[in-house]
């Protein structure tokens, strides 16, 4: 029976036990989320369904023998890039990439802010494990407000672990000079081609000069398909 007066010893003891259970659960849950057995992050199932079975190497998705290469210049923090990737890119993958007609290459830009740089470096590092495109998909699903700190190391580690990769090695690779060089090269190419907004799609047909696609066309499924078909027919 509870006694009136100062907090009873029994109630205080129960409170301490409950807190101990909560703290232990919190630490175990956090540890599980950062390990390779983490529960999948948002978007993982969709990314797997879209991309499984398609050859992937580094920044590229699709057959290296594809006649047309589409370079996608994008910033992981860019909301239009997110919209394009989640709403329009799946149709391109199904119709052209999976069939071996088109190969897509990701050119990571990081002009929006610190979150962009961290995310870009991490996706490039995931490319070393041939998982760049899955991670891009997952990060777009989790995209937060620009420069809000949403792409924290914790979030990136969790996203990487959700794909079945070890977070620590990917994190280490993301911090190397070689990874930084990939971002520098992408920016240099964007500057050379006059890329002024994201997402920007650049078509490269073997033996021909690169062609930058009108950004509005990228968001019109019929126009984009027509442009791809025309490029393949050249």
């Amino acid at each position: 029976m509870l006694r009136s007066g100062p907090l009873s010893v029994r109630v205080a003891a129960i409170a301490v036990v409950v807190v101990a259970v909560l703290v232990t659960a919190s630490l175990l849950s956090a540890r599980r989320s950062s390990g390779s057995s983490a529960s999948p992050a948002a978007g993982v199932a969709d990314a797997r369904a879209l991309l499984d079975g398609i050859p992937q190497k580094g920044l590229a998705l699709g057959s290296p023998k594809a006649r047309l290469t589409i370079e996608e210049f994008a910033d992981i923090q860019c909301p239009y890039c997110k919209r394009w990737t989640l709403d329009h890119f799946p149709a391109i993958v199904s119709s052209y990439v999976r069939t071996g007609k088109v190969r897509v290459v990701f050119r990571p830009l990081a002009f929006i802010g610190a979150d962009s740089k961290r995310a870009a470096r991490t996706v490039v590092a995931a490319g070393r494990e041939n998982r760049l495109w899955q991670l891009v998909d997952v990060l777009y699903e989790q995209q937060g407000a620009e420069n809000s700190g949403w792409a924290s190391q914790d979030v990136l580690d969790s996203a990487v672990a959700g794909l079945g990769l070890e977070a620590a090695p990917v994190r280490a690779v993301s911090r190397t000079a070689a990874t930084g060089a990939v971002l520098t090269a992408a920016q240099a190419e964007a500057d050379r081609l006059g890329v002024s907004s994201t997402p920007t799609l650049v078509f490269r047909v073997r033996g021909e000069a690169p062609m930058t696609i009108d950004p509005n066309a990228a968001f019109d499924p019929a126009e984009l398909s027509a442009a791809i078909d025309a490029a393949l027919a050249r």
């Binding site: 989320s33 937060g144 407000a145 420069n147 809000s148 700190g149 914790d154 979030v155």
Partner: peptide, 10 residues
């Protein structure tokens, strides 16, 4: 920006 970081942490 701390709110987003904390709310998205593990």
């Amino acid at each position: 920006s701390g709110c987003e970081v904390v709310q998205r942490s593990r």
